[in-house]
Amino acid sequence: MFARAAASVAVTITLATIDGAAAQTANQPPDTMAARVEACTPCHGNKGEGTSDVYFPRLAGKPAGYLYNQLLAFRSGRRKYPPMNYLLEFLPDPYLEAMAEYFAGEHPPLPQPAPSEVSKDVLAQGELLATSGDASRNIPACVSCHGPGLAGMQPGIPGLLGLRANYISAQLGAWRYGTRTAKSPDCMQQVAGHLTEADVTAVAAWLATRAAPTNPAPVPKGTYALPFGCGSQPN
């Protein structure tokens, strides 16, 4: 008798909690990262695949450490893009890390490479810089850091595929003029500092024409040695 009473009480309580929980979820946004980053997706795409705006970069599949470094830089204002600086201003580190992990873990297909607007000669110059560099002008090959497949390396070096020429040249320009900086030693600053306007156009154009590799995932940390040190890639 007693036991049954107790059991029925327990059942009622359990039912009540389940009911309450269900009601609560119905009135709450989904408890997911996807719902939490809805503020980002009009510009970066639902899965971080990018949008039609040529200056809005793809985020999907980039190394989480790299994305996290960018979010920290936007939050402090070191990397400038006011709409993003504003959104991130009062978000704590662990949350930015979770956002970085979220986009790093998404793998929508890379976009079709865009037909290029520059001449064959310019593309050839871009390919030369990217794959061999120019020792006479102290320009290392881009592949020496960004990897033979240009897919980047964990945790801090991004791949360079799936980006559009306008975005790539804007970023290289930002490094040349000091409006984008990375953790010291800022190796990209050293690289970009040696590039001329024409180099930037050429290498950005060539990178944007590359077809998607079969495996666009960044290679594991330490797969190859960098030609010189980068603050954002601890060794």
Binding site: A39, C40, C43, L91
Partner: peptide
């Protein structure tokens, strides 16, 4: 401009609103 409420101890992973500018 959209926005995120601040990340706080009581609400460490706030939901956000996109900018419509």
């Amino acid at each position: 401009n959209g926005g995120y409420p601040p990340g706080t101890k009581g609400n460490p992973m706030p939901y956000g609103m996109p900018p419509f500018a």
